[in-house]
Simulated assay, not measured.
Amino acid sequence: MKNKYMPTAISMYINYFVHGMGAIILAQNITFLMQQLNTDKAGVSYVISALGLGRLIVLFASGALSDKLGRKPFVLLGMGTYILFFGGILMSPNVTVAFIFALIAGMANSFLDSGTYPALMECFPEATGSANIMIKAFMSAGQFALPMIISILVNNNLYFGYSFILCLAILLINGLVLFKLQFPAFKAVEKEEAAVEIEVNHKANLLIEGICLILIGFTATATFYIISVWLPTYGQEVANMPKTSSLQLISYYSAGSIASVFITSILVKKWIKQVRFVIIYPLFSLVTLTVLYFNPTPMICILSAFLIGFTAAGGVLQLALTTMSELFPTSKGKITGIVYTSSSIASFVMPAITGVISKTSVSGIILLDMGIAAVGVVLALVVNIRYNVVMKKAA
């Protein structure tokens, strides 16, 4: 039987295609923004850091409110605030104003997450892992498409702002469509989940597997964030790749992420529990980063870009969130807020930390990523052990 919420889900996925472009659009247009804002790379980096800060400010509160007020208002609020960002950046005369609009973009991301992730779990209660990991596919598709769009604009000497206007137009049209679509009755689902909590939730331990999953929100985000930002620099300065080739590494990274999403969603749906990937992928990321650190060649950089995209950016964060929702079945909005608050902290502090390290050694950034991935493996090992215990007792 066809799921009546499929149009709603597709509309929400389109938002994340735009979000994928929005997450990198400032970095991709750094040269143009330096001219518009009358600043340097450090100034644009400062603006980019506002994305993580804005996300962090409202995420937990919006997650809790999503459980009380519903999913649809927060999805629409996220779309509206994202429209403000795309339009506002183009009108920003300086770094301060641009920082404010980037802060709004971070908030928009939080609003979308708070409404979309719980809504998708409620749209597809029998395939929550696959439903959530598809978000990453649409994000990666957006990140894959934007560099090509910008290349077309640059090669034809067109206004760089058309990429922002395109995102704004997609959101505006999609918002008009989504406004008329139906969302699942979240309150009725929560009543059913309350009964599940009595059976399962008291056996799960927030101070053990709960804390570990929250911290995985940090390690998973930090692992792929560092690569997505610094791998082109590493390829150029350490592996001696030409600049154009080093920039193409992000395309390989995005391709790996897209491939992972589809393969993982199939495996999660039919054969392997999502919690297993929470440890498998960070372990492969750690191995890949280790090889990259000790063998910085152009070919290794290309392979590493794809593999890190596959294992780190392919949905570990989404699978950790789904695992936490399974262990702690009630208040999906709050759970989303907690895990993504941890993720937001990573996206806010990593630019500062890696920026300092880059002044002395770009290789040191990869070494830092190795350490973060190793911590993620240990955390995931604890989660898997506890998952086995909890689910055995619940059976």
Rank of each mutant, 00 (worst) to 15 (best):
M6P: 01
A9F: 07
V18C: 07
I30R: 08
I30G: 00
T31D: 12
F32D: 14
N38K: 15
Y46M: 10
I48Q: 09
S49H: 05
L51Q: 08
K72E: 02
P73V: 11
F74K: 00
M79V: 12
F85K: 00
P93C: 04
F99H: 04
I104K: 01
A105W: 09
A105F: 15
G106A: 13
D113H: 06
E126D: 15
G129H: 04
S130Q: 15
A141F: 13
G142Q: 07
F144L: 14
I152L: 14
Y159D: 07
A169D: 09
I170G: 00
G175K: 04
L176S: 08
V177Y: 15
F183L: 03
A185E: 13
K191R: 07
V196F: 05
E197Q: 08
A204G: 14
L207A: 09
E209L: 11
I216F: 13
I216M: 15
F218C: 03
F218P: 00
A220D: 13
A220V: 11
S257C: 12
A259D: 05
V261L: 05
K273N: 13
T290V: 09
T290P: 01
L292C: 11
F294A: 01
M299N: 11
A305V: 09
F310R: 06
A312E: 04
Q318K: 12
Q318D: 15
A320M: 02
S325V: 10
P329G: 07
T330G: 06
I335K: 07
S347M: 14
F348P: 00
I353S: 00
I357L: 15
S358D: 11
K359C: 04
I365P: 00
A373L: 03
A373S: 15
G376E: 09
A380H: 01
R386L: 02
M391R: 12
